[in-house]
């Protein structure tokens, strides 16, 4: 008989591990990845490949050779960051820009703070925003999806970009909408200009539902973002439909669904309690709408999430779970 193991209780453990949770996130992202490859073709595959590969390699190299500690590649968090970064970029982004994004995401936003669990801001979003302000040309050359093996893309504006452009030129929302030929059914399924991950709302929502069913994330953050965006846009649109876009348009366009389902719900950079999550979501929704309506960028989800990320420690302190038997 071998020696008995002795340890403090509990003696059994749940099946969840960091790796299994991250694997679930990767699985949840697969529909969106498949959709984006279908719509954008092999170029999107290149962006995805470069992004994931460089995130994983950078994480390995930095942890092993610079920080001189055990590599954390095995927990798959770098893979998640890689996929999310790729889904946040237009498929036309050159490979070296993607690589720089990965360097900022993994090297600066994640490992500088001490690696998984320690970062304040969502790494993929920091990478994305860094590229957005550093390489605006590449980052705003949106292209309409042309399908797998389709001919080269035609440059075009995203719906949000078109709206902002149009408003600057003095047109009303109705005119812009009519000109762009936007249709909500089409938005839900796909076929709009934008980042890869913005193309198919249904695929992203399917992933979100998978995560909720698997109890990887709780739905409150995402739902409160959607609710806030809908409410804020309803109020503004109700007041002046010629100047402000309507709720459905705001829910379905841009990176809102990707951000609300996958970026805002990142464990590390979101509050832990349910009510903290709701406040966090309301903040993101509100800031997103303010940036969209009044900011100089057409899209504000990334900025809104990053700003609210900074408030997470405060939210965690203010919103604690009710303790048993205490007021």
């Amino acid at each position: 008989m071998s020696k008995l193991i002795v340890s403090p209780n509990p003696h059994i453990h749940s099946k969840d591990s960091t790796q299994s949770l991250m694997r679930d996130v990767v699985i949840a992202l697969i529909p969106a990845v498949i959709c984006s490859v279908l719509f954008y073709g092999w170029k999107e595959l290149l962006v995805l490949g470069v992004s994931v590969a460089s995130c994983v390699l950078l994480e390995y190299a930095i942890t092993r050779y610079m920080l001189k500690r055990a590599s954390t590649v095995g927990d798959l968090s770098a893979v998640v960051t890689g996929i999310l970064l790729a889904l946040n970029l237009p498929y036309t982004t050159p490979w070296w820009v993607v690589f720089i994004g990965a360097v900022v995401a993994i090297g600066v936003a994640k490992l500088t703070f001490g690696g998984i669990g320690q970062n304040i801001w969502n790494p993929a979003l920091v990478g994305r925003v860094f590229l957005l302000v550093s390489f605006p040309t590449y980052m705003t050359t949106w292209a309409k999806p042309q399908g797998l093996f389709g001919i080269d893309a035609i440059s075009g504006a995203t719906p949000l970009g078109a709206v902002q452009e149009g408003l600057l030129q003095g047109s009303s929302i109705q005119e812009i909408m009519a000109e762009g030929g936007y249709d909500y059914g089409q938005m839900l399924l796909a076929n709009l200009g934008g980042s890869a991950g913005e193309v198919c709302a249904l695929a992203l929502l399917a992933g979100f539902i998978y995560l909720c069913v698997r109890r990887v994330i709780k739905p409150w953050i995402t739902l409160s973002i959607f609710a806030t965006v809908a409410l804020v846009s309803l109020i503004f649109w109700g007041v002046n439909p010629a100047r402000f876009t309507d709720p459905a348009f705001n829910l379905l366009t841009g990176g809102l669904i990707l951000g609300a389902c996958f970026m805002a719900t990142d464990y590390v950079t979101s509050p832990m309690s349910v009510w903290g999550g709701v406040i966090f979501g309301v903040g993101i929704g509100f800031l997103t709408m303010m940036i969209r309506y009044f900011g100089s960028y057409p899209e504000g989800v990334s900025f809104a999430i990053l700003i609210m990320n900074s408030f997470v420690p405060l939210i965690n302190m203010a919103f604690k779970q009710k303790k048993y038997g205490r007021k």
């Binding site: 020696k3 008995l4 193991i5 002795v6 340890s7 403090p8």
Partner: peptide, 22 residues
């Protein structure tokens, strides 16, 4: 010689509160 194997947090204090030792 060891008579059992400890599998808790590697802290003497934790180990000492749990049992006599391995």
């Amino acid at each position: 010689p060891k008579t059992n194997e400890y599998d808790g947090y590697a802290s003497c204090k934790v180990k000492a509160t749990l049992y006599a030792g391995d």
